[in-house]
Each structure stands twice: as C-alpha cells, then as structure tokens.
Design a protein around this nucleic acid. Sequence first.
DNA 1: ACTTAACGTAAAGTCTACTTGACATATAAA
DNA 2: TTTATATGTCAAGTAGACTTTACGTTAAGT
Lengths: 78, 78
Amino acid sequence: MITNRLRELREQQMQNATTPGAWTQEGLGKRVGVSRQTIIAIEKGTYNPSLELAFKLARAFGVTIETIFTYRGDEHEP
Amino acid sequence: MITNRLRELREQQMQNATTPGAWTQEGLGKRVGVSRQTIIAIEKGTYNPSLELAFKLARAFGVTIETIFTYRGDEHEP
DNA sequence: ACTTAACGTAAAGTCTACTTGACATATAAA
DNA sequence: TTTATATGTCAAGTAGACTTTACGTTAAGT
C-alpha cells in the first residue's frame, strides 16, 4: 500500500508562493502535465500515480519520490 | 523518459548470491510478486513499472527508487 | 546427444491510470 | 447578491501495465 504527502507539500508551497494559483490542484496538474482530476484522485488515494508522474511530482517539489510517497509492505496490520 | 539499471543490479546480485536461481528474472519476479515477462519487459524498457512495483524492486535490492530508475525530463536531445 | 536452466518473444485478455466533460459546493471579493 | 476561485464527484472512454499461455534460443552439464 502506498500513501502520499502530496496535499501537505502542495499547501506548504501555496503559503510560501509568490505567484498565486501556481500551486493549486489545477496549477500543479499543468506543471506536471496531467489533469486536475488526476491530482485530486492521487491526493485522495483513489489510485497511485505512474512512476513517470511520481518523478515529475518529485521534481516539481524538488524532493525525492520517497519524500512524497511511502510504501508499506504489510497489507494487513493497523 | 525513464531508464533503469535493473539488469545491472540483478547481475551484481547473481554473482554475490549464495542461493542459485534467487536473482534470475524468474526469481526476482517471484520475490516482488510479478511474472517473469514483466521483469523482462522492464529490463528491456518496453514499459515502465507501476510506482508500487518500483517500490518493491527498490526494496528487494535495498536501494532507493532513484538508484534503480532515472528520469530525464527532456524528451528530445540525443 | 540429451536435458535443464535462463533468457527472449508474441498474442489476447484484464485492470487501472489518466482523460474529457459536465455538474455541485464553499469561500471570498466586488 | 453576484462573480470568481478552488475543490470535489460522477461517467464513459483510451492507453498502458501486467497476466497467462505457448513456443523458440542459447549455453552448461551429464
């Protein structure tokens, strides 16, 4: 199972940002070349991004993939 | 575009390995829960793995995703 | 010569990431 | 109150990741 800190990171950027609208869901989508709905779905956990999109997102935030996404191997335990 | 060092890393493991067959394409496939053909296709570059499979592969080799996979943003230059 | 292990390839099918389009809600500003 | 911005949701379609099955090759061992 994969979880992510996309919303958290995006909101950090929104606060520090000089250009308004640059880090909205739509702005981020344009930045990494996907639709707004795709960003929403990933933030919500509806599905996981492709490896390529994961790279683009990591690059957009200037961090590694592992900083945004966390993989837990165990499928069951709470 | 995404490239990977899967074959390189796998062959390193094959040399250092104690258990034969553990790091063959089939062995690696079983280890990360995909078919042998999937490993072949990724090594060959036919397609990119899902983010989840990328995590499993990184974990299998004990490295980060960025160690195995490299993303180049520029689509054109040679 | 025969067998076995490892690698490669191709076809058809399933599942999911991602798209477009349309409609709904909340908040803040004019 | 109206307008604009940002977020959320649903539906139908396309593309790509992955599967199973099956057959072919090459090198090593016996």
